[in-house]
Design a protein around this nucleic acid. Sequence first.
DNA 1: AAATAATACTTGCAAAATACAACTGTTTTA
DNA 2: TAAAACAGTTGTATTTTGCAAGTATTATTT
Lengths: 147, 147
Amino acid sequence: MTLKDEKYLRQLIKILIRNLGILEKSEFSCCGATLGQCHAIVEIGTAGEISLNQLAELLNLDNSTMSRTVNNLVNQRLAERKSDPEDRRYLKIRLTEEGEKVYKTIEESMNSYFYEILGAIPQEKQPQVMESLELLVAALKKIKCCN
Amino acid sequence: MTLKDEKYLRQLIKILIRNLGILEKSEFSCCGATLGQCHAIVEIGTAGEISLNQLAELLNLDNSTMSRTVNNLVNQRLAERKSDPEDRRYLKIRLTEEGEKVYKTIEESMNSYFYEILGAIPQEKQPQVMESLELLVAALKKIKCCN
DNA sequence: AAATAATACTTGCAAAATACAACTGTTTTA
DNA sequence: TAAAACAGTTGTATTTTGCAAGTATTATTT
């Protein structure tokens, strides 16, 4: 690789994140919940059932912050929270029916958004783009674990 | 493309952003400034001279928020701000010598970080990854402008 | 040329996000 | 059994943020 390649890579990723970030924001703002709540809903929905700890880890937030966010979701009847009978230190957080609805709405909207993105990439290039992202993710993992 | 491709794309990008986000945070936290200030420093440094408006647009923040961030940078002698003689509504924001130092530190650290990422990708795949990111960015732009 | 509108930025205010530290309750370990 | 470790909550303080209202400057309209 040449000397400037990493700068270009950085620039590309910067633009990518910025664009996605903006769109993610506007995309999410449809539902009544805040951005943080929506992220939580998606993670809970994906996991089906999850502890506070895990959730906080996934969203890279402090447990206290996470606790309050979940609290709000519970108050809005979007999630429910009960202590794990196996180990009563843990919570089992899951979505209510109402929460599932919101989750599905977000999912649909996000998936159709990414469907659009994919559609805007020439068909013959799509596998390459997928593979490249995999390579990038693998590269990040490699760096992360080895320092 | 198959039905599930967009979900996979979404997942990949999600992981990518999460990883980069976390690393970006920890990477930036080295300098005395906050994350928001660091972003601002990078943008001002890249532009050389920039108005508040443009800066807010770049960072996707409200002008008021941006104004305060710049204010802090000025107070810390990292940036200076004077009104544009051509049109006195605009500001000309630029880095001080001290700010340039911080900017260079961040740049070096970020570039070496991305150099590492690039290095963790098989050499023969690197051009493909670059092209794929370009394609993604282009796809995002295409979607954005046409809705 | 004067009044109006538009623009760039700042500031007052309030709300939301966030983390740290101290706490409770539960389980594991010594 | 006592101490340590862990999951989660709550008090508190800080930070981030944006909206709305303000000032100052420039462009537009009449």
